[in-house]
Write a protein that binds this DNA or RNA. Structure first.
Lengths: 114, 114
DNA sequence: CTGCATCCAGGGAGATACTG
DNA sequence: CAGTATCTCCCTGGATGCAG
């Protein structure tokens, strides 16, 4: 019943990695936070997260959508209108983010430089 | 007093990024978990985290040490003996890791593939 | 407006060989 | 035993330009 075998370790680690992956990279966290203020359109996010590039913004949004933390809604109009919105599953991430923030603040106090 | 300015956002984001950085990469999380079972020597970790390379293990351990989540103790002996050990600050990370794991498990249920 | 195609630079991390 | 040196590969993500 050891918890120290490779397999058992991985079983514990994999969900953590999943979570880290959803938040990983330079932009996903910022994106999530901006979307937590309300739905956003593509160009609005591009402005708010400047200097993000269109290509990167597009890719990051797709990733978040694939992970079901945001939804993408296309409205039939010209010029095109697309709205991004956080899901309940996405909202549930903020509890975790808040914990990370708390630890990070304690960490900063301890390290005292940077 | 808006919480939506770029500066205010960053203030919230930076500690979160700090935390993510400490855990980031392929190995640091595994390293931390193995060290949570007790102190470890270099070659022991190398075996447990196989197929990690010496170079990478060395670098990751330095990073964790710089972030004060582990300590490195060198014993005066031949051949050399070095022991790595988690610090209280490192221990405090496990609460956060556990939260990440919980969210990750819920996430996995929702996604249902991979 | 929204977003894809192409090209490219920089950093993370592996392989291998070597040292106090 | 516990690392360091060097070289290399690859992936993430940036720059630019084009399309529906």
């Amino acid at each position: 019943m050891s918890v120290r075998t490779k397999e058992t370790c991985n079983k514990h680690i994999i969900p953590v990695r999943d979570a880290l992956e959803v938040l990983g990279g330079r932009w996903k966290l910022q994106l999530l936070i901006h979307l937590s203020f309300g739905p956003r359109r593509f160009s609005q996010l591009a402005k708010e997260l400047s200097p993000i590039t269109d290509r990167t913004l597009s890719r990051e949004l797709k990733s978040l959508e694939a992970n079901k933390v945001i939804t993408r809604t296309e409205y039939d109009a010209f010029p095109p209108v697309v709205e991004y919105k956080i899901t309940p599953h996405g909202e549930s991430l903020f509890a975790v983010i808040s914990e990370l923030g708390n630890w990070g603040r304690a960490h900063r106090k301890l390290i005292m430089d940077k």
